[in-house]
Write a protein that binds this DNA or RNA. Sequence first.
DNA 1: CTGAAAGCGCTAACAG
DNA 2: CTGTTAGCGCTTTCAG
Lengths: 327, 327
Amino acid sequence: MADIARMAGVSTATVSRALSGSALIPEATRQRITDLAQSLNYRVNVGAANLRKRDVQTVGVVILGESMQAISDPFLLSILGTVADTLDEHGMSLLLTRLKEGQSHRLSEMVEGGQVNGLIVIGQLTWHDHLNKLAARGIPMAVWGACLPDALYPMVGGDNEQGGYLATQHLIAQGCKSIAYFGDLSHPEAGARHQGYLRALHEAGLQEDPRLQQSFLFGDTRIRASIDQWLDRAQSFDAVFAASDVTAISIIGALKERGIDVPGRVKVVGYDDIALAAHLHPSLSSVRQPTVDAGKALVSLLLGAIAGQPKRTVVLPAQLVVRESTQ
Amino acid sequence: MADIARMAGVSTATVSRALSGSALIPEATRQRITDLAQSLNYRVNVGAANLRKRDVQTVGVVILGESMQAISDPFLLSILGTVADTLDEHGMSLLLTRLKEGQSHRLSEMVEGGQVNGLIVIGQLTWHDHLNKLAARGIPMAVWGACLPDALYPMVGGDNEQGGYLATQHLIAQGCKSIAYFGDLSHPEAGARHQGYLRALHEAGLQEDPRLQQSFLFGDTRIRASIDQWLDRAQSFDAVFAASDVTAISIIGALKERGIDVPGRVKVVGYDDIALAAHLHPSLSSVRQPTVDAGKALVSLLLGAIAGQPKRTVVLPAQLVVRESTQ
DNA sequence: CTGAAAGCGCTAACAG
DNA sequence: CTGTTAGCGCTTTCAG
């Protein structure tokens, strides 16, 4: 920048003002300086500017993932995409970090070390208590997940109870009587979906059967085993509500392999409405979560928190998308 | 930091040294300072430290995406995951940016503005020429994609020609005679897969049929249309090689909807071996790309480029994974 | 082993 | 409208 100033015959202050679009600089001067900078491929050093401005214009997006491997859930990724776009619209940068169990301390370090203005936390909430502590300490953040009643941090989440209810009610309306549930119950969001499932069952006067409620993850080989077991024990079921599309696809695979027709003999509903759902055969009925709204809400809540606004909670409506797997 | 120094009765220089683990500081002093910092939730300001050290320890990961919407391809995401982990192991941060067509100038700005030390570029390469210009200008980068012969930048990519060859050869070995190709030919990687497809065909003495080679993307409704058309015109085919799993799934859906059995009447191979491939029914044969190696190679090439090492190119082997969709 | 001093590259009062 | 000056929070010679 000193170079530019010298070459343009002005002070660095003028260059700084010209390049940052200050109204104090007349158009002619600005043009000259801008052109000079352009021709030298010069850009203002963001880090230095941020240091001086005592602001970093960056938010940390943290994905809580148990598996070291790939970012797993297509749905979370779709949120990541809209968060990235929304931050960009606000002129903020996005520092991406994946954290495993046991690295929780790194959350606050990012903020205290001045790397980011705040955090957007995506993923499962086995960290609820830790997040509460950070919120109490005044770390700005916004969390995607289940809306736990005692959360001290800004939250955005889908209406999981409603989603579970809609899915189950739909299966009941299709004439199903024995509806199984698959989903990781240790996960708060899946827990809420399960609550909705139970509510729909009770409302329809159907008996809930604990043997038809299993806590499994995608690709778990025991999915296959327990389906086999249920069938062997004549533990009949005519529908499955899976707490994620990926799990649903896994289940449909297991059922078909066993020669069981979907939706003929067993109807299946998933959750998340991933892009693939519409293109499978049978196409998968699913509960859609509004990802674009989710990303926008996360960013807006975080910016609010950074600005010192009181915590808010956003619950996004769930929408049932009916396709072939339930008809 | 000044506070800590005052409270510990030492200079800021000592605090800085203690906190950065300098060997000059005796263990007792360091302990005292560390404890003090801990109790005050103090962390060294990364931005200020970086400014002074004239280094940012950050790399920009840029995803070139045409669709504003979600990050689409599960395979690219899986690379993103391993890149994130690998950078973390190297103690570097990851600044994520999605760029649309027409924003190419932002690539160099990130480096020239000192936000990042270098770039990892993921996605399709309609930007080949622009990337070449940046490389010539000395912008450190590493690109995932097709290994174009005139590339001036460090590249890592799968052996797409080999992958296409393996997939097609396998279909031929299964007795298929009319093998269709689906994939975006404007995309260099898909182009190479197509080359491999042609090579296998010729090697087996099979005639290539231009009418069986279509350039479509995932979910394109014309996939359905052209399958219908082929069948109507008695343009029979008994296999499809799709240049991505997502496309393959879309095609299988279209075929099944039309009542055509997979793999009975038409066999299908995809590309990428996404996690879902093994759990579908029929499970999907696919060409696996080594994502973990890909992530590691990208990071290692980029760090090399930053260190001023000459450009290298890494081609990762393709591996065919045979599943039900081709048996 | 420790401290004083000099900036990293930039912006924002403040005074022209 | 423009320049001078004083730092942002840290690291690192260079002298003790």
